[in-house]
């Protein structure tokens, strides 16, 4: 499996191809969202909603062979696309790897100017929640 850094570099080079054209970048992010794995209907409930996002984002996680598998969804297509980028980098990894991950692709692709500052705050909340899950699973493993 590629390292977190390799996958981030891959994402950055994909966005470089899109250049400065904001419209194509947004279309691309929406397309990524469409490929997000289906989210279980029965998990679409209040307690799985991430606080701090303007749009609704549901996130759940389970553990298999010491690695965390996240599933997420949103009611907006752009947010779904952003989630799919995050999960591409962080899914199926060990908790400590996720907690240590430095997500530099976010600033390298100029996320702030693509999605605006309010959504950037929401994006930060998503990362925080993903890392909180990792911390919880790590604590459980160590018990």
């Amino acid at each position: 499996m590629s390292s977190i850094q390799d996958i981030q570099d891959e994402i950055v080079s994909e966005f470089e191809i899109l250049g400065d054209d904001k419209e194509s970048t947004i279309f691309y992010i929406m397309e990524l969202g469409a490929s997000l794995a289906p989210f279980p209907e029965n998990e679409r409930k209040e307690e799985n909603i991430i606080k701090g996002c303007q749009s609704k984002v549901w996130l759940i996680a389970d553990e298999q062979d010491g690695k965390i598998n996240y599933k997420a969804d949103s009611n907006t297509d752009i947010t779904k696309g952003l989630i799919s980028l995050l999960l591409r980098v962080l899914n199926n990894r060990k908790p400590e790897e996720i907690m240590k991950a430095e997500l530099d692709f976010v600033s390298r692709i100029g996320m702030g100017s693509i999605i605006g500052s309010q959504r950037s705050n929401g994006f930060a909340s998503m990362i925080k929640q993903i890392k909180l899950y990792a911390l919880a699973f790590q604590t459980k493993q160590n018990v």
Binding site: K22, T25, I26, Q54, T76, D77, I78, T79, G116, R119
Partner: peptide, 21 residues
Amino acid sequence: DMHPFDVGVMLDANGIAVRTG
């Protein structure tokens, strides 16, 4: 079938400033 936020971001990409939400 589209969220107003997404429509707003795409209009912004076209130089059009609107409010969403």
